[in-house]
Simulated scan of single mutants.
Amino acid sequence: MFTLVHLDTPPPESLKNQVLQMVVDYFSDISPVSLTPSNPLYQLYQYVIGYEVHLYLQAMDATQASSARLVLALDDEDPSQVRGFALYLPSQDDAEAATLAYLAVQASHRRNGIARAMLQRVIEQRPHVEVACAAGKAPVFEAMGFRVLAAQGPHVLLNTRAHRSNGMVAVQNLAPIFESREVRQIHAYLVQQHGKKALSEAESKRDRLLDQMAYQAEMLVKERFPTIH
């Protein structure tokens, strides 16, 4: 069993470290770009997404309505152990709206209702919730009450309501992370390990994957709204 905790300030270091480790462990599940470990760019994107989540957690501030919020599922028998997390971004100018940024559950604790319970807690705080995900994951959110609204690039947009909020959310700008010294060092290491040609091929493979995801998103939306297209 598990207990849910809702946080509007940075979590204790031990819990934060577990969340960040889950981002690393389940990167393929939660990343907007569904790279697999076989792609040489995997490590680079793994670092970028991990650092993005770190920045969200670090900037959590109860006095700022637009800063990230965190729902943790803690083990009932050992509350020091994180079994799942949901990170969401409240809207700055719509008190009911939010965007679900990341959600993950420990593989050994899935199918126990943790994801559904965490999402329900988010919805209790902000009933107008939006999420963008790969087409293959859309049915999971639909089963939890979300509605498909549209395709947006490689993702399907789903919402708890039949329309999007007009509110804005404060998302992290990833450009400075990609331009950081650490990412440049990772890229240089990957070039050294795999060679420039392999990295170029990995980038092409990533781009083809994004194109494929965009096509799948469009197809899913057409399936849901056959009379509109």
Rank of each mutant, 00 (worst) to 15 (best):
S165C: 03
Q64Y: 03
L35E: 00
G113V: 06
E124S: 13
Y88E: 03
M118K: 02
F27L: 06
F27A: 08
Q152R: 10
A59R: 02
Q43L: 08
V171E: 03
A95K: 11
L103I: 15
I228M: 15
V169Y: 02
E203H: 12
D75L: 03
G136K: 06
R121D: 11
G153V: 07
L55C: 06
A98T: 10
L157I: 12
K205N: 14
L55I: 01
Q193M: 12
V33A: 02
M213W: 13
K197T: 10
P176L: 06
E77D: 08
S14R: 09
E179T: 15
A73C: 14
P12E: 12
V169I: 06
D61W: 13
L74Q: 04
Y215T: 10
A143P: 07
E182G: 07
L7G: 08
A98W: 03
E218C: 05
M118S: 04
L4N: 09
A115S: 12
V131D: 04
A214E: 04
S80R: 03
V183N: 10
P139L: 13
A73F: 12
S38M: 00
D93N: 14
F146D: 01
D78Y: 06
Q152T: 02
R206F: 00
P32R: 07
M144Y: 01
T36G: 04
A117R: 03
T99R: 05
M168F: 11
Y215A: 15
S66N: 08
A135Q: 03
M168K: 11
T9A: 14
H194G: 09
E52V: 05
Q64T: 02
P12S: 05
Y88M: 03
I49Q: 04
R161L: 11
Q81H: 15
